[in-house]
Every structure is written in C-alpha cells, then in structure tokens.
Simulated assay, not measured.
Amino acid sequence: MFSTFQLTHIPSLFVASALTFGGMVPLFAPQAAIREMGFPARLHASKEAQSIMTLGMGRTTVIGIALWTFYLQGKFEAVDTLLFILGAYLGAIDAYVCVKEGVTGKAWFRGLSGAVIAGWGWCGMMAWV
C-alpha cells in the first residue's frame, strides 16, 4: 500500500503538496489567490472572479489529492502521467491567460514551470528507479 520513497520523488511530491494546499487558499483568501496568480488588480476585488477562482482551485486540490493517493498506492506511472498532462495542458492555459491579462512575467513563469513539470512526468521520474 505505501510506496518506497526515492529522492526522485521530491519534485513530484512538492507539486502534489502545492496543488493540494495551494488550491485551498481561495476558500479563505480569494483576493490573495487571484493576486498570487498574477492577475490585474481589477480582478482582485471582483466577487465573480473570486467565486470562479474558488471553484477552479477546488478542482486543482482534487488533482493534488489524486497525486498523493496514487503515490501512496505505489502507482508511480499514474503520477507521472498526471504530471505530464497537468504540466503540459494547465501550464499552457495558465501562460495563455496571463498573457491575455497582460502579466507576461507570470506567463513565462507559469509556462516554464508547466514545461518542467510535464518533462518530469514525460521522463517517468516518479517511476524511474
């Protein structure tokens, strides 16, 4: 049931933890979550944007919990697959939306971070022994 820890698991577990707990931030501080994403100030106080951020990040938390669940079950290939999809698709979406909103610094960071996460998953670093 429980997996055998390897040093190559650290980045994946970091991502899983960031998604799990970071996704919970909008429940308590939606303005701060919107600000952290890098969106313009006009969106921080928007009740509509806060509701959407809370709903979307709730789904992000589910992905983090799924990563942890698969890890604890020893299903490392599933973790790698989720990391690849997560990094490639969500990294691109995050970068695209940030560019549209005029926050190119955050767009580069999110796009490159997504590419690294996708690469980690594509190379099978969680299942690699």
Rank of each mutant, 00 (worst) to 15 (best):
V25Q: 06
K47G: 07
A33Y: 03
M57R: 03
K75W: 09
M37A: 15
E36L: 13
A95S: 13
G74N: 07
I85L: 15
G74M: 05
L72I: 11
L55P: 00
F76S: 12
I63V: 15
R59Q: 12
L67D: 03
A95R: 03
V62N: 03
T20I: 00
L13W: 01
Y71E: 12
A92S: 15
G23T: 09
G64P: 03
L43Y: 13
T20D: 01
A92G: 09
T81F: 08
R59L: 13
I63S: 05
P40R: 04
I93Y: 00
I34E: 05
S17H: 06
P26T: 09
M24A: 15
Q50V: 03
W68A: 04
F76M: 12
K75V: 08
Q73L: 15
T69V: 13
I63T: 10
P26Q: 03
S46G: 11
E48K: 09
I93E: 08
F70E: 11
G56H: 08
A95Y: 04
L86G: 13
L86V: 00
E36H: 12
A29E: 03
R35G: 01
H44S: 03
F28M: 12
I93L: 12
F76E: 12
L83T: 01
I34R: 03
P30T: 09
A41K: 13
V25L: 15
A45K: 14
L86W: 13
L67G: 02
S17L: 12
I85C: 14
T69I: 08
T54I: 01
A33S: 15
F14C: 12
T60D: 07
G23V: 04
R42V: 12
L55N: 10
G23C: 08
S17P: 02
P30M: 07
F14G: 07
A78F: 10
F76T: 14
T81I: 10
Q73Y: 09
C98S: 13
M57G: 00
T54Q: 08
V62R: 01
A66S: 14
A29P: 02
F70T: 08
G23L: 07
Q73V: 00
V15E: 02
T61M: 11
R35V: 00
G23F: 01
L55F: 13
Y96C: 06
C98W: 00
T81N: 12
I52V: 15
S51T: 14
L90R: 01
F70W: 13
A78Y: 12
G38L: 09
R35C: 02
W68L: 11
A33D: 06
A92Y: 06
I65R: 04
D80S: 07
G87S: 06
G74C: 05
L55K: 08
I85Q: 04
A45H: 12
M24W: 04
V25D: 03
I52D: 01
F21E: 03
I63W: 08
L27T: 05
A41M: 04
E36Q: 13
G23N: 01
L82P: 02
Q31A: 15
S51I: 08
L27H: 11
D94R: 08
Q31G: 13
F28Y: 10
E77I: 06
A49C: 04
L19E: 01
F84A: 14
G64N: 04
A92M: 11
L82G: 14
